[in-house]
Design a binder for these strands. Sequence first.
DNA 1: GGAGGTTCTGGAACAGCGTTCCATCGACTC
DNA 2: GAGTCGATGGAACGCTGTTCCAGAACCTCC
Lengths: 236, 236
Amino acid sequence: MMERCSNHVKMVLMATHTRRTERRTDALSKERIVEAAIEILDAEGESALTFRALAARLATGAGAIYWHVANKGELLAAAADDVIARVMTGVAGGAEPRAAIRVISSGVFDAIDAHPWVGTQLSREPWQPAIVQIFEGVGGQLQALGVPERAQFDSASALVSYILGLAAQYAAGARLLAPDTDRSAFLATIAERWMQLDPAKYPFVHRVATQLPEHDDREQFLAGIDLIVAGMTAAR
Amino acid sequence: MMERCSNHVKMVLMATHTRRTERRTDALSKERIVEAAIEILDAEGESALTFRALAARLATGAGAIYWHVANKGELLAAAADDVIARVMTGVAGGAEPRAAIRVISSGVFDAIDAHPWVGTQLSREPWQPAIVQIFEGVGGQLQALGVPERAQFDSASALVSYILGLAAQYAAGARLLAPDTDRSAFLATIAERWMQLDPAKYPFVHRVATQLPEHDDREQFLAGIDLIVAGMTAAR
DNA sequence: GGAGGTTCTGGAACAGCGTTCCATCGACTC
DNA sequence: GAGTCGATGGAACGCTGTTCCAGAACCTCC
């Protein structure tokens, strides 16, 4: 048969053989591969995740990895899904909806803060499982928030788009930020560049440039969430 | 000297030599390169833009391009800036702020709709000129909207993050969408996949799945803008 | 109008990537 | 033991962004 991997095929194979007895204790598996990928991503950044580096860390060859994972996109999606799933299970139910949305949002933010590559991945493939999890998490609160049925789809989409947008922004910042320099110095550089723009063409940018270095990303992110939630309940 | 390109160095050189007289009518220039890049991106998509393809179209070598452009990132940023600049100059001033924000937003949406690669690029590098233009465009309306001084930075950031998030989402959709299939069929596929999720774990996703194929991206995007603007004016 | 320097060109070469291919291994069934 | 088949690992392929450099095109000054 020699079929190359796809989850569906794998499932069928496992089903016919009653149950997979693990062949060796050090056997490769999608879980072990994803785990190793996350370790590389966290330790050395997005650009360090190559199939060669991954193979070296797992003491195997690139071909073996492709038996378990279809391609790099699937690997990254699985890694991001893994991180987001941990965030979403950490969110307990039963809270007041406004608070629940804040908890989910800040959980996602903190996850991206800790693993910037997740931000890149989320904005690269919007229909991956990780996004659906977030969509469900915030969408499930809207009924309790009093958002009319007809507006719930648009509202949840707006929240998710906002989260995605910030995810991309933050991840991009982390990508070009040297690992040792701190963020406020980096933002000061951006602010300086803003100051050098033509004040006639960019009056607003000039006005807020001073606020850029001293602002708190996390607070600004949550302020945006509050803004959108306020809009949802106001436009009753 | 043989200095390799950077805008700053170029400027200095030009200044010392009073004025560059164009050497040949078919001379290479950053403008011509960006123009050719946009043509390739529009006609064949993001993956078709390679330095080899670009060199072939310009009937030159890859090395010549690098004299005018530092790297591929700068090329993409310049291309996106070009498109967004056309959008922003098309927006006349003097309108009611709420309407002006809608005009800017839908202008950006339409640009990404026509050039999906712009969406990818905007979310990849959030501090590029194109983003600053959008930031200025929406931020400049907030004073007239009555948003308090202290909240303007957060509000403008929220709007831009939202626009970026949707840009990424839409561009990713266009990326994996075969050029001939239509969008509604594609969305129907996604909706089907949503339907197959566990209804106990994903009740909200199930509920809105039916709305997915028939929804209008542009309208949903503008609904999100209205939501955020409503939030800004409500939280007075 | 040539000399000499600078700007710019084009193509070869390099290192590294994702992916494919395939000989081979290990475990299980007959 | 022979045969089957999931699984392995490493070589090889085609492509990428980028660098390098010999030399053409051009400008300036004598």
